[in-house]
Write a protein that binds this DNA or RNA. Structure first.
Length: 428
RNA sequence: GUGGGUGUAGCUCAGCUGGUUAGAGCAUCAGGUUGUGGCCCUGGGGGUCAAGGGUUCAAAUCCCUUCACCCACCCCA
């Protein structure tokens, strides 16, 4: 806010400062730990990719590709894009690195920043962070269950409760097309067409499925009898879906099915799911995913079934903040050195090095301030001990150690060779 | 991209329908203790009142533009 400072953070981006960075680290650690427990290995792929990867992978009809990508042209005239999501890159790497020749099934996860040029608001940023998991090569319903349970477990271990799992199956592209046509017919009938809202009139043309997201009460009334995707699933689609639900039932993972749940990416087939919260307002999806059995083929690979999900870290952290579920445990310093006078200050680098070499966290005052101010600083940093080094101590060959928790003081030899971690461990 | 709201100190916010040098709490720094933190007391620093333009004798206050943030639409994590 310094008026002279006229370079600003881009809209929808954030600085994660030292006071909140520990929350991020903790969340990421939890994600990595659970992923490892489920047998998923980390994959790191470029933040910048050829634009065609997303045009073909994410799908040219999606909002992401049509209006939300950060695309630039490099000096060679190539069109590059800052990744808006992770799945296409994972599939690209899977084929490019010939992973399909090494093993039939791959379980991979990623974690990192994504970029979307949307209007920022709560729970939606232009640079945001996702973790995601992909299980490539398996078609059985139990692999869907594996992924949903993985998401469920991670969210739970992150401390997120009161989240609702919503399940749907959108079947094959053919089923969806049939459904679409019926829906258009249903909404285009005379007597209906005039009663739906303007937005929905437009949706009927662009993407009829979207009418199911409308909140308008008269639209909702009409839509109660609208055809839903479940009526168009093939026997195999329906059997697959039933088995996914049965798998979740056996594990007592609660869910709601919603044949009207719509996802905005082109590549989904059969199972789709979302974990939703009621803490975030409009941006209520904390994790979303589904099966994408045709995506590998669209990149020229062999027919390869797959399932995946992605989850937004900002939204998760925002939820935790709402519920107070991220109690801060401020890091405590072991020793704060209070140096008085030039001679003492000259010695502090060695003293610090010795302490740090012993594995103790330590710091000192770099402003040449009075003892009072230095102790205040020691207090602020949560130091357990203050090591007071002044002319008196140097003359005596013994330094003063102050126990910040109870104010008690003792002395230790000035000779650092004689130091042990024991003398810096305050009595409990 | 569209609609609505907001923008005053580092942070959270007062400042009524325009009227003298723009305030509080917290934070910060200093003093009360010439070498002893947390509590308390006293004092200091810190604002082109988001930016730019306009109306007016007079603008933090009214108008316009831009920017940022928030909410909703759209869509998604």
């Amino acid at each position: 806010m310094n008026p002279k400072m006229n370079i600003h953070r881009l809209p929808g981006t954030a600085d994660i400062l030292p006071d909140v960075a520990p929350r991020w680290n903790r969340a990421e650690q939890t994600v990595r730990a659970v992923m490892a427990r489920f047998g998923f290995g980390e994959i790191r792929f470029p933040i910048i990719e050829p634009t065609e990867l997303f045009a073909r992978g994410t799908g040219s009809s999606t909002d992401i590709v049509q209006k939300e990508m950060y695309t630039l042209t490099d000096r060679g005239g190539r069109s590059l894009t800052l990744r808006p999501e992770g799945t296409p890159s994972v599939v690209r790497a899977y084929l490019e690195e010939n992973l399909n020749h090494q093993r039939a099934v791959w379980k991979m996860f990623y974690i990192g920043p994504m970029f979307r040029a949307e209007r920022p608001q709560k729970g939606r940023y232009r640079q945001f962070h996702q973790f995601g998991a992909e299980l490539i090569g398996a078609a059985v319903p139990e692999s869907d269950v594996e992924l949903i349970v993985l998401g469920h477990t991670i969210l739970g271990e992150l401390g997120l409760h009161n989240i609702r799992l919503v399940l749907n199956s959108i079947g094959s592209p053919q089923a969806r097309q049939a459904h679409n046509e019926q829906l258009r017919f249903f909404l285009g009938r005379p007597g209906v067409q005039e009663r739906i809202c303007e937005d929905c009139q437009r949706r009927v043309q662009a993407n009829p499925l979207r009418v199911f997201d409308c909140k308008n009460t008269s639209c909702l009334e009409i839509l109660r009898d609208a055809p839903t995707i479940d009526q168009f699933l093939t026997g195999e689609d329906a059997a697959h879906f039933a088995r996914v639900r049965a798998g979740l039932d056996r594990l007592s993972v609660p869910y709601d099915t919603d044949p009207r749940m719509v996802r905005g990416l082109d590549y989904y087939t059969r199972t789709t799911f979302e974990f939703k919260t009621d803490l975030l307002g409009a941006q209520d999806t904390v994790c979303g995913g589904g099966r994408y059995d045709l995506l590998v083929e669209t990149f020229g690979g062999p027919p390869t079934p797959a399932v995946g999900f992605a989850s937004g870290l900002e939204r998760i952290l925002a939820c935790l903040e709402e519920t107070g579920g991220c109690a801060e445990t401020p890091a405590r310093l072991d020793v704060f050195i209070c140096a008085l006078g030039d001679r003492a200050r000259e010695m502090t680098p060695e003293l610090l090095s010795r302490l740090r070499g012993m594995g103790l966290s330590s710091d000192t005052d770099f402003l040449g301030r009075a003892l009072k101010a230095q102790l205040k600083e020691a207090n602020r940093t949560g130091a357990r001990l203050a090591l007071i080094v002044g002319d008196d101590e140097i003359a005596r060959g013994r330094y003063t150690v102050r126990h910040m928790d109870n104010g008690g003081q003792s002395e230790i030899p000035a000779d650092t060779e004689q130091w042990t971690t024991g003398i810096f461990t305050p009595a409990a």
